[in-house]
């Protein structure tokens, strides 16, 4: 009994000590992940901001010192930057519209219980999303869109038409098409998950009330998809802003600057022109653009977390 009492006081003290360091334990658990992200994301971001105000060119070692806003001014004055900015917006907006239209259509289709083997069909339709972007680019720029040997050229010839050199004649629409092929499955899968969450009896009730298929969809199903659609728009915006691999292997940003988006522009500034200062200034614009979307996205996620807690 005596030893027990002594042991318990020791334990008590340990526990109280432990209580004081509860925060310490939490930090030990969560700290490594936070520190890791801090070191790999925020520190480099701060460095990017720093570089964006510096004269810094890898092939001009004597060109140093503070640049003030010169890098920003130069970037803004660079017609290539402006076209990259516009290209980015075009690529994002056009791909958004197409992936959501197709994704919604596919989702409704595969949500129909009368479709035989719909799970397998859905899986096949979702496949483009799992293809590495580099391979996606290769498939389309070579096997599909090559003006001489591509499948589409053969199809055009079969129809008695002159084959089109898609990537040369319509570079941006072609790129949008490639991105749409790759990302429609994402919109489809998200919307499909939300669609299957629409209660069957709700639809049946609408049917009993005399609503046809279209009216049921328009008034019962579509309103339920409001939030998921909103989320898909923002998520895809974030992902489309950073598209790189597909451009790298298809058009290399060309012809000219026709398909150079912000990431590709920054890549060229850094690794072709070796202009670290300008690349950093351009990167800051990309970050700002992403943040505009991210703010809305984070707010939405926050309200979802709050609802669940």
């Amino acid at each position: 009994m005596a030893t027990r009492a002594i042991r318990s006081t020791v334990k008590t003290r340990q526990r109280q000590l432990g209580k004081a360091s509860q925060g310490m334990i939490s930090f030990l658990l969560i700290g490594p992940a936070v520190v890791y992200l801090f070191v790999w994301m925020l520190v480099p971001l701060a460095m990017t901001i720093y570089y964006s105000f510096r004269n810094y060119n890898l092939i001009r070692p004597t060109f140093t010192g503070w640049a003030g806003i010169a890098n920003y001014a130069n970037v803004l004055a660079d017609p290539d930057f402006l076209s990259a900015f516009i290209n980015t917006l075009v690529l994002v907006v056009a791909s958004l519209i197409l992936t959501i239209l197709f994704g919604l259509f596919f989702a409704v289709l595969y949500n129909n219980e009368h479709v035989f083997g719909r799970n397998i069909l859905r899986t096949f339709a979702a496949s483009p999303f799992f293809i590495m972007p580099v391979v996606t680019g290769l498939i389309w720029s070579n096997l599909m869109m090559n003006p001489s040997f591509g499948l589409l050229a053969a199809l055009w010839r079969g129809l008695g038409l002159v084959p089109i050199d898609f990537l040369a004649q319509f570079p941006m629409p072609s790129l949008v098409g490639i991105v749409t092929w790759q990302w429609t499955p994402f919109a489809m899968l998200v919307l499909l998950a939300s669609l299957s969450g629409v209660p069957e009896d709700l639809k049946e009730a609408a049917g009993l009330d005399g609503a046809g298929a279209w009216k049921t969809f328009r008034h019962i199903v579509l309103p339920q998809l409001g939030r998921p659609l909103y989320a898909v728009v923002m998520l895809e915006s974030i992902f489309f802003l950073v598209i790189f691999g597909q451009i790298y292997v298809t058009t290399s940003g060309g012809p000219g600057t026709a398909t150079t988006n912000l990431p590709y522009y920054i890549y060229l500034q850094a690794f072709s022109a070796y202009n670290i200062g300008a690349a950093s200034a351009g990167a800051i614009f990309a970050v700002i653009l992403a943040n505009i979307v991210a703010i809305f996205l984070v707010r939405m996620i926050y309200s979802n977390i709050q609802e669940e807690a």
Partner: peptide, 13 residues
């Protein structure tokens, strides 16, 4: 939100 930071924003450093 760090996942929403474009990779180009940290590429150079």
């Amino acid at each position: 939100s760090t996942k929403m930071l474009p990779a180009v924003g940290v590429l150079v450093p």
